[in-house]
């Protein structure tokens, strides 16, 4: 357990500076991309267009954006009214969560996706065939197909840096310590302390997304004001986990993320039963045909 590395993302102190995005792109030598007008359909499809959403200029994670800072503007209790009371601006630096039970890794048919010695999920680029099954299997929309290479890409938790004893580039660049790199057990303790400290200060909406550390709270602002929240553990835990201040869906995170394999045995079982029913009806059709012919022959013989 102590060897597992991960990150704790404290959204309560994220300022949306995007230093993490820049550091990620720089370390991994990814092109910055030039935003194009929204009218350019190809640009929109390839996530190169202006988003028109707050200060967000990359939209979401993609093959060339392994980290993405989300901006969520909550102005007034309901954005359809003129009430502009209780405004708040939530920000979150998102990336691959390096799930303890990773759907992408589970479905990979070539072994290209693998678990590293640090517990993170990495990709052998020369083994990936670009089948894109992992893209559909990820419950967070993290892993993405790279049109240029014909393979998939995502955050690899700076595997090359970890192998030489360094931390992740994004955490190194974060000026507010919103991103903290370390061992998962240490980070869990730090996250738990942080939630309790925020609650003690009256910010009772803080809770952990990724591990259930037993914290509960109540949202203090925004459209969900008054709603209860509590720590959420998904897919066996997340090695990159979050302190959130509103419901997971507000941040574009699923409240009940699950492994795609949950459907495997039931689906295969129902398919087998259906095949058996179809086989029986096929045999019945031929048997009926023979019986009809025998009956006709008997009638003819009798006549």
């Amino acid at each position: 357990m102590s060897d597992l590395r991960g990150m704790f993302v404290d959204t309560s102190i994220c300022t949306g500076c995007k230093a993490c995005q820049v550091a990620c792109k720089q370390w991994n030598e990814m092109a910055p991309g030039v935003p194009l007008p929204m009218e350019d359909e190809a640009a929109v499809r390839e996530h190169r267009a202006f988003t028109g959403n707050s200060y967000d200029n990359t939209g979401h994670l993609s093959a060339t954006n392994w980290r993405h800072v989300k901006f969520i503007e909550q102005i007034g209790p309901d954005q359809t009214t003129a009430d502009r009371s209780d405004p708040r601006w939530l920000m979150m630096s998102d990336s691959c969560k390096h799930c303890v039970q990773a759907g992408c890794l589970e479905v990979c048919p070539t072994g290209a996706l693998y678990r590293t010695q640090f517990g993170s999920v990495d990709i052998h680029q020369d083994v990936c065939i670009g089948c894109r099954y992992c893209v559909g299997a990820c419950p967070f929309g993290v892993i993405a197909f790279n049109q240029r290479t014909g393979r998939v890409n995502k955050c690899i938790l700076c595997q090359d840096r970890l192998e030489v004893g360094m931390g992740t580039a994004c955490a190194k660049a974060c000026p507010t310590s919103s991103l903290t790199f370390g061992t998962v057990s240490d980070l869990q303790a730090m996250a738990n302390d942080r939630v309790k400290a925020l609650h003690a200060r009256g910010q009772t909406d803080a809770y952990i997304y990724g591990w259930d550390l037993g914290n509960t709270g109540t949202i203090t602002a925004g459209p969900n004001k008054g709603s209860a929240v509590k720590d959420v553990e998904v897919v066996g835990g997340l090695n990159v986990f979050y302190l959130l201040l509103d419901k997971p869906e507000v941040y574009g995170l699923p409240a009940h993320a699950a492994l795609p394999q949950r459907n495997f045995v039931p689906s295969a079982g129902v398919a087998l039963i259906t095949a058996a029913v179809l086989g029986v009806t096929g045999l019945a059709a031929f048997r009926r045909n023979r019986m009809d012919e025998n009956a006709a022959a008997t009638v003819e013989g009798g006549a």
């Binding site: 759907g103 795609p260 459907n263 398919a271």
Partner: peptide
Amino acid sequence: GYSGVLLNVTNQGVWSDTWLMGALFIC
């Protein structure tokens, strides 16, 4: 049937919402 089961074993809307995709593809 495997391609139907394959669609079931994803996290995509419609595909993963039922267990009947494999059965449909067998049909």
